[in-house]
Computed example of a mutant assay.
Amino acid sequence: MRRIVKRMIRIEGRDAMPKVTEAYREARRTEIADAALRCFAEKGFRGTSMADIIAASGLSAGAIYGHYASKEELFVAAAQHVLSARTVELEELRAEHGPLAPGEIMAALIDGMRQEVITPNLFLQVWAEAAIDPSLREMVHRFLAPARQMLRGLVAEWAAAHPDIAGAEPEAYARRVVPVLMGLAPGFMVQRAILADFDEEAYLATVSALIPR
């Protein structure tokens, strides 16, 4: 009987599947998204296939599709990763300096984005194609929605602290100002991509000073 019990224990131990933790799944998703970013940066969004991403990741097709159904999903995940990093940076600035002026918010956001592997040229490509491709338009909306929400919150906070500039309705002020602020990022990216003499630092300094403290 004792031998039978030991044999059962050995069989159960051998057959038991290791539990996959959420941290492991998130790390794997990040690994796949990073591989996709490298491909997008090298070949552009349209020029990148899922086969390219699979090869760059070193993982199996099953491992990739177990997390992402398409390169569109991967782009959204990568873009959200970029946005998360910018959110952390803005929160650190806010903790150090208090409510950030709208110009400061956008200058910090653009500065962080230009450091990323996912290049401004890639964002320009996707935005341009989104104008004529409904599926890409939906993808861009999914990325921009949390970005707009974050910016509205930060601008409304600053507006509430500066009624002399923003008026008595900070939420209304934020709704008016955020679309203008968001237009500054594509302006930066377009000029950076096509103008050899574009002064990035002067652009960011001017954006920061547009609505001073």
Score class of each variant (00 low, 15 high):
residue 107 A to G: 08
residue 74 L to N: 00
residue 49 S to C: 02
residue 104 E to W: 02
residue 97 H to P: 04
residue 119 T to Q: 15
residue 111 D to M: 08
residue 40 F to H: 12
residue 110 I to M: 06
residue 69 A to L: 04
residue 81 H to E: 15
residue 45 F to S: 08
residue 73 E to F: 02
residue 43 K to Y: 15
residue 42 E to M: 12
residue 46 R to F: 10
residue 57 S to P: 03
residue 114 R to M: 10
residue 77 A to Y: 01
residue 119 T to Y: 00
residue 106 M to C: 06
residue 120 P to Q: 08
residue 114 R to V: 12
residue 96 E to G: 07
residue 109 L to M: 15
residue 104 E to Q: 12
residue 101 A to Y: 03
residue 82 V to D: 11
residue 93 L to D: 10
residue 70 S to N: 10
residue 99 P to F: 07
residue 96 E to I: 02
residue 120 P to N: 13
residue 65 Y to M: 07
residue 56 A to V: 06
residue 113 M to F: 10
residue 90 L to I: 12
residue 113 M to I: 11
residue 94 R to Q: 12
residue 90 L to P: 08
residue 82 V to M: 14
residue 93 L to H: 11
residue 41 A to M: 12
residue 118 I to Y: 11
residue 89 E to T: 13
residue 51 A to K: 13
residue 75 F to R: 09
residue 73 E to A: 04
residue 106 M to E: 15
residue 102 P to D: 12
residue 86 R to S: 15
residue 41 A to Q: 14
residue 82 V to Y: 07
residue 85 A to P: 03
residue 104 E to N: 09
residue 97 H to S: 10
residue 58 G to H: 06
residue 56 A to M: 11
residue 65 Y to I: 00
residue 39 C to K: 07
residue 63 A to Q: 10
residue 54 I to Q: 11
residue 55 A to F: 05
residue 95 A to M: 02
residue 43 K to R: 15
residue 102 P to N: 07
residue 61 A to N: 11
residue 69 A to C: 03
residue 52 D to M: 08
residue 46 R to Y: 02
residue 56 A to L: 11
residue 71 K to A: 05
residue 58 G to E: 12
residue 49 S to L: 07
residue 77 A to K: 10
residue 65 Y to H: 13
residue 120 P to K: 12
residue 71 K to W: 01
residue 102 P to L: 04
residue 70 S to E: 02
residue 119 T to V: 13
residue 87 T to A: 15
residue 84 S to K: 13
residue 66 G to Q: 03
residue 73 E to H: 00
residue 90 L to F: 03
residue 118 I to E: 11
residue 61 A to W: 02
residue 107 A to P: 01
residue 47 G to I: 07
residue 78 A to Q: 06
residue 118 I to T: 09
residue 110 I to F: 01
residue 109 L to F: 14
residue 60 S to P: 01
residue 79 A to E: 10
residue 115 Q to D: 12
residue 96 E to M: 07
residue 78 A to R: 13
residue 113 M to R: 14
residue 79 A to P: 08
residue 86 R to E: 14
